[in-house]
Amino acid sequence: MTPAGLAPGEALFGDGESPAMTGSPLGPGRMRDIASVVLNDCSFVVSSMSLLDRHRRVFVPAIENLPDPAELARFDPQYHLDAGGGLILDNDFIRRAERIDAIAAPVCGGGFNDYRHFLCDGLPGILLHRQVFPDIDLTIVGPALAPWQEDILAALNLLDRYRPVSGPVVFAKVLTTTMLALHAAYPTGFVRPIFDVLRFRFGGSGCRPTRKVFLSRAGTDTHCPLRNRAEVEARLAAIGFDIIRPASLTLREQVRLMGEARVVVGESGPAMAGLGFCQPGTLVLEIQPDACVDGATRAMCCLFAHRWHLYLARVTPEDASFAIDCDRLSAAVATVALSPEGNEAS
């Protein structure tokens, strides 16, 4: 099954089968209009990054990563289900909630802890609101930040506006957008300001990009783990790839590294968001397990003018893992690494 626009042996490789979600040139094909939203007397439930308006109605775009809003009751103790299966906010939340007279903007939706979602979901809306409404005293809210999240907000000059929340809160107003939870999975051009500002902030060498980079997911939890990772990384290192674990780099190092990359190979996942820091025309080979659907990288490559290629790997149903034939992968990389002019990318 060949995704639309990809030619076997030229842009499509591997032994897996294409999930239907990769069939569109823009990945899942869910690019959509974005709305700016104001919620008055808004309850902010930080444990799930969910929002409710003054009538206790859940703002679905904040939790759109859940198939059904009722699933909040499964993992967020602030919610439970009534006798009819309807979602109810716990009365104790309403009783204990601190009322804050501020205009708040959630830093993210349900993907708060994910690098790609943190960059692509809430932050584009915040940055745009700051530009369109510079006189509004906007308070950015969310849980306590991890160091990497602090680095991102500091680089965007937003950290001094951040207010960590730990308990029940009702804000006078919440100013947010409909791209609060799944914008990273179905990105639009609204992600560009975040990556453009960070690239401009940290700059680069100014030289023609030449590096070949493999973005390793070693040491991270994945739904479909790569069984022969050590063999794959050794083979790629032998043909000139730098094996990079993005989580070990500072934000400045990530931005500059990706700006120097001519060829990027990596598994589907959060680290591929770093393609937003690459120079246009970067050659990309995404390794996608055929049981772990993800169209985000393809959409990102479209938005940032990269040349996207796909290596589909067949997942073993028994343990949801996959292995890669290194000879087949090397042949795919050799094809991808040819520039449009036919000269190998060194």
Rank of each mutant, 00 (worst) to 15 (best):
residue 255 V to N: 04
residue 242 D to A: 14
residue 87 L to A: 00
residue 36 S to Y: 13
residue 109 G to M: 11
residue 148 W to F: 10
residue 115 Y to M: 08
residue 24 S to G: 07
residue 171 F to L: 10
residue 206 G to R: 11
residue 258 M to I: 08
residue 95 R to P: 12
residue 346 S to N: 14
residue 175 L to G: 00
residue 186 Y to K: 05
residue 326 C to D: 05
residue 241 F to R: 08
residue 11 A to R: 05
residue 297 T to S: 01
residue 43 S to K: 15
residue 42 C to L: 09
residue 58 V to H: 01
residue 41 D to R: 15
residue 320 A to D: 09
residue 209 P to W: 11
residue 18 S to T: 03
residue 144 A to G: 10
residue 120 C to F: 02
residue 317 P to E: 10
residue 331 A to V: 02
residue 86 G to C: 07
residue 247 A to R: 14
residue 267 E to T: 07
residue 22 T to F: 02
residue 62 A to E: 00
residue 95 R to L: 12
residue 23 G to T: 02
residue 330 S to W: 00
residue 88 I to C: 14
residue 226 L to W: 03
residue 275 L to I: 14
residue 115 Y to Q: 05
residue 305 A to V: 09
residue 35 A to E: 02
residue 115 Y to A: 03
residue 71 E to S: 00
residue 136 I to N: 09
residue 213 V to S: 10
residue 242 D to W: 11
residue 312 L to S: 12
residue 202 F to Q: 12
residue 250 T to D: 08
residue 60 V to N: 02
residue 240 G to D: 08
residue 272 M to P: 00
residue 249 L to P: 08
residue 150 E to W: 07
residue 145 L to A: 13
residue 19 P to Y: 03
residue 189 G to K: 14
residue 268 S to M: 07
residue 181 A to T: 05
residue 148 W to L: 12
residue 98 E to V: 13
residue 64 E to A: 06
residue 219 G to I: 08
residue 172 A to Q: 11
residue 319 D to H: 09
residue 7 A to I: 10
residue 27 G to P: 00
residue 78 Q to E: 11
residue 335 T to H: 10
residue 57 R to I: 04
residue 266 G to E: 07
residue 229 R to W: 15
residue 128 L to A: 11
residue 12 L to I: 01
residue 321 S to I: 13
residue 101 D to V: 15
residue 334 A to P: 03
residue 12 L to K: 02
residue 194 I to T: 04
residue 185 A to L: 01
residue 11 A to Q: 05
residue 116 R to G: 01
residue 73 A to F: 02
residue 10 E to D: 08
residue 292 C to P: 03
residue 95 R to M: 12
residue 40 N to A: 12
residue 186 Y to M: 01
residue 155 A to W: 07
residue 126 I to G: 15
residue 27 G to E: 09
residue 200 F to M: 13
residue 32 R to K: 06
residue 335 T to W: 04
